[in-house]
Design a protein around this nucleic acid. Structure first.
Length: 854
RNA sequence: GCCCCUGUGGCGGAAUUGGUAGACGCGGCAGACUCAAAAUCUGUUUCUCGCAAGGGAGUGGGGGUUCAAGUCCCUCCAGGGGCACCA
């Protein structure tokens, strides 16, 4: 018997699947569909272990569902716009398009060598004009529908690179590449109106019952809806005023000041005539944009000298401060401060000697003796010192206060969200151009549909700072489509999250000349099972949910939610190694030296073994999937990915683990390709009667079918693997010569091959052929467990005395409780444990347990 | 600071959802085959007392509910994650 040749066999079946177009699908309205999608990769150059884990999970699901009779859509594409391509262009003098397409070619081959059941005829790449032309059309529709707009907003500006930086490109307040101090700057940017859907997106979370609770919670917190009131404060001695947002309008009578954000228009206005305030605002600006920096800064303010009228207390005036902790981006950028019932307001009031008036006193405390100490009182209670609100509870007082505000025209009930509109402008080359033209007389003019796509110019360089589109000699100079005058093309490109917000729908009809073919999206969408990393829990998944609604509003799609089921996988981790200088060492450079020490292969020097962490190039604790595929084959790698660790948790990559999977591949090969004992012909009739060993084996097979099916259904891949291994162990031990043993062995082999099919498709297909089947395994049905074999005639019942196990008894299934009790009490260890005492009570749980209480 | 998750042998993990804790795998130990090694196979492997038969302890710590708790409740500890001046 020859050893299993993974390389040869895997290539053979990949070719057969491809040639027979097994995984290419089309809409079949009378068959149930199932859309499995893994988050598509960024073409960084080579696949990594995270990809292997992600795509294995998706493939197992796709193959399993296909065997169960579903019409399965399982596509693949490339999220191919983005900054790394520009960095590569800068470093290696290679054009982003060339770099990207080369990477795609390499990674496509790598993914194909994994044996994924993907319909490659649907492959898409987001950096190609055939893809993003539709995005440009969508944008223009969004623009017309008021879902996209342009406004000034703050950006991180790198004065050396002459470019806008993303938040993650700002490290300790400095540009990641230039090291220059980043400055905040206002710039006109494009936005998508995601906040228009804030409530819908929040309420929609409720119905996403096949999403992890964790992700649902994160999105809920991200949107962060809070109910309260908008209150208008009138400036004394002026005609204007400003609005604040508050969740506690009930505490208005306790207000002792108002505070504005340093970016508030009124603050900026005051600074023009108040040099000290101007200096204060400049100081706030220097703090940087990172929230961590804001956090560390001491809370302080500056008195503007202005006062506002209290909306409820006639004649009362409140001072107006500018305070560094007020965010312009949240609420209205202004607050009123009630020091008695908000800790931050209390700290501020103490610092600037402002009055502190309690207006809510806690239950069970004398109102007269109640004072605010070091802690503001934020709990429920009864209103005092509050005029018409006195005596009310907090909830009632909020309602009454809002009603009064509305009566006197000083405010209204309002719902506020933390969620902000999605800024999609990037001052970058390698992205989808925003298809508009700026005209001096006509303003913002959409590029006419006939002129789309707006494509990127090829003749660009990356060796100087700034946006290559902006400094291109001709690209941006165009005539206005309306008036024909010289105009300027928009040089911003879209955030790459835009492309990934609709790609799942494009897969339904990837070569349609319209963005979506309606009958195709109506058939395939929503995605039944979406799989990816939890790092996309908020942004990508929220943007895609928004986009789906926006597309529905513009008539593109008929659904609200893009992903009916979501699974977030854990990371792939590995031990870390450091040499004596603290330098990171690759696992492939490590070997076990004499005495069990880990040593560097080349230098022979000792390395220290650190904790297991997410595989990352910076720590060098990476294992290249290409080497694993070459050495062990795809099936072993896939099996290891599914074994041991539950898929939602982190997986620890170990050498011995992949060895174990490789051993299993060979074991199953020996078991089935070179069986020890007779095997009935494929399709042989089932014998009328079996001996005891055959019946037991048959039960085991049916139990395995039942367990593995349930496990795969619920994404419990590690348990599915354990159950298949149990079955393999049992078949190896099955040496019966009873009548029918050859039939049982055949049944066991066929079943084992079917059950491992989704995880190890190549060896399964090969064994399936060797077992004499004409049809491909990939086209065969999933086995169904016969319930009659799942129930045993006898059961093992545990016998406890005072909750402690003392023995077990074998009883016929569903035996009378009295009979079971008698048998239990007759057990020697039970009698001993009872010490001659009479049982006070005996609990019998049918077919499970007997507990004797003495 | 607030919110969420996790904690089980030497290791990854399992436990029909309140009913025999440790399935399955990794590693270790002993043995078989071999001149030897690799590969493979067999046995063993929670800890502890004991020659043994047997006993005791045990799911991060403490407390509780229950005939019965890894599982439910309270509390503390540790690790991980999310949000973070959110008005």
């Amino acid at each position: 018997m020859s050893r299993y040749n993974a390389k040869e066999t895997e290539a053979k079946w990949q070719e057969i699947w491809r040639d027979r177009r097994i995984f290419e699908v089309s809409e079949e309205p009378d068959r149930p569909k199932y859309y499995v999608l893994e988050m598509f990769p960024y073409p960084s150059g080579r696949i990594h272990m995270g990809h292997v884990r992600n795509y294995t999970m998706g493939d197992v699901t796709a193959r399993f569902k296909r065997a169960q009779g579903f019409n399965v859509l399982h596509p693949m594409g490339w999220d191919s716009f983005g900054l790394p391509a520009e960095n590569a262009a800068f470093e290696n003098k290679v054009h982003p398009a060339i770099w990207t397409r080369q990477n795609i070619a390499v990674m496509r081959d790598q993914l194909k060598s994994m044996g994924l059941s993907i319909d490659w005829s649907r492959e898409i790449s987001t950096c190609e004009p055939e893809y993003y032309v539709h995005e440009q059309k969508m944008f223009l529709e969004f623009l017309a529908a008021g879902l996209a707009y342009r406004k000034e907003s703050w950006v991180n500006w790198d004065p050396v690179e002459n470019t806008v930086l993303a938040n993650e490109q700002v490290i300790d307040g400095r540009g990641w590449r230039s090291g220059a101090q980043v400055v905040r700057r206002r710039q006109a940017q494009w936005f998508f109106g995601i906040t228009q859907f804030a409530d819908e997106l929040l309420e929609g979370i409720e119905a996403l019952d096949r999403w992890p609770d964790k992700v649902r919670l994160m999105q809920t917190n991200w949107i962060n809806r809070s109910e309260g009131a908008r209150v208008h404060f009138q400036l004394i001695g002026r005609k204007d005023g400003f609005d604040v947002f508050t969740t506690r309008p009930d505490t208005l009578f306790g207000a002792s000041f108002c505070a504005l954000s340093p970016n508030h228009p009124l603050a900026l206005e005051c600074a023009k005539t108040d040099p000290a305030l101007a200096e204060f605002l400049a100081e706030c600006g220097r703090l940087g944009t990172s929230e961590a920096a804001l956090e560390a800064a001491e809370k302080c303010g500056h008195d503007t000298g202005l006062t506002v009228a209290h909306p409820f207390k006639d004649g009362a005036a409140l001072p107006v401060y500018v305070a560094n902790f007020i965010l312009m981006e949240y609420g209205t950028g202004a607050i009123f401060g009630c020091p008695g019932h908000d800790q931050r307001d209390l700290d501020f009031a103490r610092k600037y000697a402002l009055p502190i008036l309690p207006v809510v006193y806690p239950p069970d405390i004398e109102a007269a003796g109640f004072e605010i100490g070091a802690q503001a009182y934020v709990g429920d209670g009864v209103l005092i010192n509050s005029g018409f609100l006195d005596g009310l509870g907090v909830t009632a007082a909020i309602i009454r206060a809002i009603a009064r505000l509305e009566e006197i025209g000083a405010g209204e009930g309002k719902v506020n969200y933390r969620l902000r509109d999605w800024g999609v402008s990037r001052q970058r080359y390698w992205g989808c151009p925003v298809p508009v033209i700026h005209c001096a007389s006509c303003g913002i003019v959409p590029v006419p549909e006939g002129d789309l796509p707006v494509t990127l110019p090829d003749d660009v360089t990356f060796d100087e700072p700034g946006n290559p589109l902006d400094r291109h000699p001709t690209w941006k100079h165009v005539d206005c489509p309306l008036c024909g005058a010289a105009a300027r093309r928009e040089t911003d490109t879209f955030d790459t999250f835009v492309e990934s917000s609709w790609y799942f729908a494009r897969f339904c009809a990837p070569s349609s000349d319209r963005a979506f073919r309606r009958d195709a999206v109506d058939y395939w969408l929503p995605v039944d099972q979406y799989i990816g990393g939890v790092e996309h829990a908020v942004l990508h998944l929220l943007y895609a949910r928004f986009f789906t609604r926006a597309l529905k509003r513009c008539g593109y799609l008929g659904i609200d939610e893009p992903f009916a089921g979501l699974f977030t996988q854990g990371m792939v981790c590995h031990e870390t190694y450091q040499d004596s200088d603290g330098g990171w060492v690759y696992p492939s450079q490590i070997t076990t030296g004499p005495g069990g020490q880990m040593i560097d292969v080349e230098s022979g020097l000792r390395v220290t073994v650190g904790r297991s962490e997410k595989m990352s190039k910076s720590r060098r604790n990476v294992v290249d999937p290409a080497e694993i595929l070459e050495l062990y084959g795809a099936d072993s790698g896939r099996l290891f990915m599914m074994s041991d660790s539950p898929p939602e948790r982190d997986l620890e990559w170990t050498e011995s683990g992949i060895d174990g999977s490789w051993r299993y591949v060979n074991r199953i090969w020996r078991l089935i390709a070179a069986p020890d004992g007779a095997v009935a012909m494929a399709g042989a009739a089932q014998p009328d009667a079996f001996g005891e060993a055959c019946v037991a084996m048959t039960r085991m097979i049916h139990r395995a079918i039942f367990a593995v099916t349930a496990d795969l259904e619920l994404f419990r891949f590690n348990r599915a693997v354990a159950h298949v291994r149990e079955l393999t162990n049992a078949l190896e031990a099955f040496g019966s010569q009873e009548a029918g043993h050859d039939w049982v062995r055949r049944f066991g082999f066929d079943t084992t091959v079917k059950l491992i099919g989704p995880m190890m498709p190549h060896i399964a297909e090969e064994l399936w052929q060797r077992l004499g089947h004409e049809k491909l395994l990939a086209e065969s049905d999933w086995p169904v467990a016969d319930k009659a074999f799942l129930i045993d005639e006898t059961v093992t019942i545990a016998v406890q005395v005072k909750g402690k196990l003392r023995g077990t008894i074998e009883m016929p299934r569903d035996a009378e409780n009295a009979v079971v009790e008698q048998a239990a009490l007759a057990l020697e260890p039970v009698r001993r444990a009872m010490g001659g005492a009479a049982p006070r009570r005996v609990i019998v749980v049918t077919n499970k347990i007997v507990n004797v209480v003495v």
